[in-house]
Amino acid sequence: MSIFSNILNKIFHHDSAPASAPSTGQAAAPQSAPAGGTPQAAPATSTAASTPAQSAAPMQEVDVEAVLTQMQANHSEQLNWRTSIVDLMKLLGLDSSLSARKELASELHYTGNTEDSAAMNIWLHKQVMQKLAENGGKVPDDLK
Score class of each variant (00 low, 15 high):
M1N: 15
I3C: 03
F4M: 07
F4N: 01
S5G: 00
S5D: 06
I7W: 00
I7R: 04
N9L: 05
I11F: 05
F12T: 12
H13F: 14
D15N: 14
D15F: 14
S16I: 15
S20T: 04
S23L: 15
Q26S: 12
A27V: 11
A27W: 14
A27R: 12
A28Q: 09
A28Y: 11
A29C: 06
Q31Y: 12
S32L: 15
A33N: 08
A35H: 13
A35Y: 08
G36T: 15
G37Q: 15
A41I: 10
A42Q: 05
S46M: 12
S46A: 13
A49P: 06
T51S: 08
P52M: 08
Q60S: 01
Q60T: 01
E61Q: 11
V62R: 13
V62D: 08
D63M: 06
A66L: 08
A66I: 00
A66T: 10
V67N: 00
L68S: 02
L68E: 02
Q70R: 05
M71H: 00
H75K: 11
H75E: 07
Q78H: 09
L79E: 02
W81K: 13
W81E: 12
W81L: 11
R82T: 15
S84G: 09
V86W: 01
L88G: 04
K90I: 02
D95L: 00
S97T: 15
L98Y: 08
S99H: 05
A100N: 04
L104S: 05
A105Q: 07
S106C: 07
E107T: 06
T111W: 04
S117Q: 07
S117I: 01
S117H: 07
A118G: 11
L124C: 06
H125G: 04
H125P: 01
V128F: 03
V128P: 09
L132V: 02
A133N: 10
E134M: 09
G137W: 08
K138V: 13
P140Y: 10
D141T: 09
D142E: 14
L143P: 09
L143S: 10
